[in-house]
Structures are given as structure tokens and as C-alpha cells.
């Protein structure tokens, strides 16, 4: 049984202009000790899906799913009190903005110790010892001095290390990291990713990494789910995804990596992710897809099997060529 089971998860937001579906039938299973990545552009619903798992969405959101479970416990109909026994203890999350995610009015030691006190009921001395151990584990120099530090005295990278220490406090089974390196300097990004992978290796904590950065995915993840406009469009293990992407969106994302650029111009994907009110009737990627046909325009695409990376596509790619496409070479000319 997977540690985290998400089946057909949908999230709708009430807005003044009517309901808006931010997450649309997404599925994901994460095994214990695994590193899974969820990749997608801004607005692809990747963060919202994970916030739904944590139960952190605002009241205006409605969550529905065929199954949403963590460690065998159903998270959908769970009472808030029961959920709080899981969240923050076995299931932790770190966020994109470390500088604003720490409470400015409390010391680092207090904020880490709080989870230890509430979840584990540790005494003051035990909390101090464990906090020092955690700060040491996340690579903070001179942890004794950092205990009394306030968040504004820390750099962004330090703050994120503190956030990670906080997430690790109760030895969780899974950590969800929502763009943990996006707000950090490039040099610090690599350190934080290394830290997350190293901690997984040491503690066996599974990791769900939400990112828009294919470079981050390549360095850390073992399995990748690609999200587009609230839907999962492809899921594969990381090597095969990079070698042979099956969804045209994944292929376009990989082609847009600067290090893969061959010409003088950086390749990009024209257009933007559709919003609430300009959703295409058929395939959501159709307006931006270089292989799109009339069928893609009119009919929602089927979910392909494992061999085609569960691609949500009428003509999944194999070795870069759309399978079953009426004119497999059309897209190449348009792209060129």
C-alpha cells in the first residue's frame, strides 16, 4: 500500500464569477521513502493539490476525490482534530517563501520546539536537545546560538533550513516541499536540494517535491508527475521521462530547458496556461500543442496506459513522434 494515495482529486474554488476548478481529477501514489516530483507551470494546480492533502486550503475551496489517504488513513472525511494528529507529525510541509513562512515574533528554538511539545509532549530539556540535533542535521552552524535567533536575523537559505528542521521535528513519514528552492539564490538552491535528498537517505522520509524547474527534477526526483492546467498529463520515472517524454507538453517543457537549446534563440512554449474562463473544450493543451488536430480541439483526450507514461493525449509521443497522428511530421515543420 502506498504511503500517500491520491485518486481523482479535484479542487473547486468559489469565486464571484462562479466556480473555478483548480485541480481536475489528479491521481498520485507515493511509496514510503520515495522522492516524487510534481512539475508544472504556475497555475497548474500542483500546490493546490498538495495543500488539499494537508487540509490547508481556505474555506472557499471544495475538495473531492475517489480516495485521499495517508498511511492508510482516509483524509477526506477526517475530523479536524484527527487530521491535526497526522499533519505536522507524520506529514509535514515546507513552503516556497522561507522568509515569510517563519513567525517573526518567535525565536527559532521556540518554533521548532512547539511541534515537539504539542505532538510529542517533550519536556523543555528534551525539546532543546532535539532542536539542537535538528538544527545540526539541517546544517546550521553554531546551533546553540541560533536557538534564540529571530527569523529576521536569518538569511533565506538559513530560514529554509529552519523550516526543514521544523518539518523533520516529529520524524515524519512524508514531507511535501512546495517549491522549496524557488525563492533562494542559485548557489543555495543546490545545497537545499542536496540536504533534502541526504535527509531522505538518512531518515527514510518520503518526499513530494513541487517545482516548475526541470533541472531540480533531474537532480532529485525518482518519479515525476507533470501537471498542466489542473490535470496530470503524464507520469513516468525520471530517467525515462527525460529520455522519452510521451506528452507533447512534457516534450515542450524539456525542449525549453536552456541547457538543451541548440540554436541562438531559447526555445519556449508559445501562449499561456488557460484560466478559468478560457478553457478549451477538448484537450486543455490543444491551443499550444504543435501536433493539435481537429479531434484534439473537440474531444477530451483519453488517459493512455503505463507504456505511454499515462499521458493524457490523443496522440502520445513515442521517440518524439505522435502515435496514431494523421500527419506525424506536421508538427515538426510548424515548430521549425
Amino acid at each position: 500500500m502506498p504511503l500517500l494515495e491520491i485518486e481523482e482529486l479535484s479542487v473547486d474554488f468559489k469565486t464571484s464569477a462562479g466556480p473555478f476548478r483548480a485541480v481536475d481529477g489528479v491521481s498520485l501514489a507515493v511509496e514510503a521513502g520515495e522522492i516524487a516530483a510534481v512539475v508544472g507551470e504556475s497555475g497548474s494546480g500542483k500546490s493546490v493539490a498538495m495543500l488539499a492533502v494537508m487540509g490547508l486550503l481556505p474555506w472557499s475551496a471544495t475538495v473531492s476525490a475517489k480516495r485521499l489517504a495517508f498511511d492508510g488513513k482516509d483524509l477526506l472525511g477526517i475530523a479536524p482534530r484527527q487530521r491535526r494528529r497526522i499533519v505536522g507529525r507524520d506529514l509535514a510541509m515546507i513552503f516556497q517563501e522561507p522568509m515569510t513562512s517563519l513567525n517573526p515574533c518567535f525565536t527559532v528554538g521556540w518554533q521548532i520546539g512547539e511541534a515537539l511539545a504539542v505532538h510529542l509532549g517533550l519536556s523543555k530539556a528534551e525539546r532543546r536537545a532535539r532542536t539542537l540535533e535538528l538544527l545540526h542535521a539541517v546544517g546550521i552552524p553554531a546551533p546553540e546560538r541560533r536557538l534564540a535567533a529571530f527569523p529576521h536575523q536569518l538569511s533565506g537559505g538559513m530560514s529554509q533550513r529552519v523550516m526543514i528542521a521544523m518539518a523533520l521535528a516529529c520524524r515524519p513519514k512524508l514531507i511535501i516541499a512546495d517549491e522549496p528552492t524557488t525563492a533562494l539564490d542559485v548557489t543555495i538552491q543546490a545545497q537545499i536540494l542536496d540536504l533534502l535528498v541526504r535527509l531522505r537517505d538518512e531518515t527514510g522520509t518520503a518526499l513530494v517535491l513541487i517545482t516548475h524547474d526541470m533541472g531540480v527534477v533531474a537532480e532529485t526526483a525518482e518519479r515525476v508527475a507533470v501537471h498542466y492546467a489542473g490535470q496530470k498529463v503524464e507520469e513516468q520515472d525520471v530517467r525515462s521521462l527525460f529520455r522519452d517524454p510521451h506528452h507533447p507538453y512534457t516534450a515542450a517543457l524539456l525542449a525549453a530547458l536552456p541547457e538543451r537549446a541548440t540554436g541562438r534563440m531559447l526555445p519556449s512554449i508559445a501562449g499561456t496556461v488557460p484560466g478559468a474562463f478560457d478553457r478549451p473544450p477538448g484537450c486543455l493543451f490543444e491551443p499550444r500543442c504543435r501536433f493539435a488536430t481537429a479531434r484534439c480541439r473537440d474531444k477530451a483526450p483519453p488517459r493512455q496506459g503505463a507504456i505511454a507514461g499515462f499521458a493524457l493525449c490523443h496522440y502520445p509521443l513515442a521517440e518524439g513522434r505522435p502515435v496514431g497522428h494523421p500527419d506525424p511530421d506536421a508538427g515538426r515543420e510548424r515548430a521549425a
Binding site: 499533519v87 513562512s101 517563519l102 511541534a115 504539542v118 521544523m166
Partner: peptide
């Protein structure tokens, strides 16, 4: 954000 963090800690 820090209020969300507090909730994410299961407080």
C-alpha cells in the same frame, strides 16, 4: 504565510 505554517504544523 507563517499562519499557514502553524496550521501545517498541526497546531
Amino acid at each position: 504565510d507563517y499562519v499557514r505554517t502553524a496550521r501545517a504544523k498541526g497546531m
